Simulated assay, not measured.
Amino acid sequence: MASFEVDRKFLGNLAKQVEPNNALLASMLFKILGLHINLTEQTAKARKQRKLDTLRTSDSLELYFHIVWLAREGLIMLEQYVLPMVGDHGELKVLAFKLRASFYHIFVLFHNNPPISAIGVNTSMPYIPPIPRLDKGKGVDRHDTVSESGRSSVQPTHPTEGGPVGPPPGFGPKLPEPAGAFLLPSVDYRPTAHEYFKQALALADNLLWGSHSLRLSVKTEYAAFLYECLHDEAGSRKLAKDTIAEVYDASEGMDDDMFQDACDLVTVLGKMTKRGLKPENPPRSSGPNTGPSTTSRAGPPTIPVPAPIPGPGMGNFI
């Protein structure tokens, strides 16, 4: 994903910048960079599989464990060593808040309960192995009858009498925990992830200019989160559309590398503006020599999203 590449660039550049004055912070940023590269590769592999079937193949289970573990360790390093030391550094602060939201985004995709994504693992339905039969096929002969004369006086004569007594509440057999619960609690991470995305977005709007590639990275992943995790298709398209308009309206200059990153992210955002919309049906013709028919059997046509109008000097931005 283009936003992940931007995040890695800023991780490396900012680590070099702070290294002379804060070696510990630089070391943690470099560690998060290496973890982020590994995590991106594993999530891309999982997306290609489309579904992690942990009940049939051990490879899927190991991949799922690896993704959850990497995201958990990255979040621990970020919250314990990076966030307390970001200070007033604008880009580093935005990046740290964005990475925290990204790690929770991973939890929602792969470890949420209830599951919301097809690529994740169903944590609400733990796998319960079958209990082996101990009678080897020889069931209890239920056709034996006991004569009334041979029935003891202490034996129950009514179907509801007697029987085994169940354990009191709280002392019953423990249900098996879902896969991955030993790494991370199986809960609903969507509210927390959404709140962290909104915090990162507010920081990016206040500290970075409109066409800053890190700011675009925050909004690109937030738009993906809205679409994939909250299923807010209209909100995702609106955010992508508004972000493109802000880029065209921005007048700040940028170097060649940031300009290329901004172009890539704007391309991704352009695709997001059409994500979830039904394609328009081509007009039907009544015959080879007649024009297009004025009637259509399809539903009401969708309104195409208007393309943003470029500002002065931004005509060849994309």
Rank of each mutant, 00 (worst) to 15 (best):
M1V: 05
A2G: 08
A2D: 11
F4T: 10
A15I: 09
E19C: 00
F30D: 14
I37Q: 09
K48I: 13
K51L: 15
D53E: 15
S58C: 13
L61P: 14
Y64K: 04
H66W: 10
V68I: 15
V82Q: 01
V86C: 03
G87W: 06
R100D: 07
L109S: 12
F110W: 08
N112S: 12
I119Y: 11
L134A: 11
G139C: 07
R142S: 11
T145K: 10
T145N: 08
E148C: 03
E148N: 08
R151L: 15
S152K: 13
E161Q: 11
P167D: 12
P167H: 10
P168E: 08
K174T: 14
G180H: 09
D188Q: 06
A193Y: 05
Y196W: 01
L201N: 02
L214M: 12
L216H: 11
L216T: 04
S217D: 09
Y222A: 00
L226H: 00
E228V: 05
E233G: 01
A245F: 00
A250L: 09
D255A: 08
D257A: 12
M272N: 06
T273M: 14
L277K: 04
P288H: 11
T290K: 15
G291A: 14
P301A: 11
A307L: 06
N316W: 08
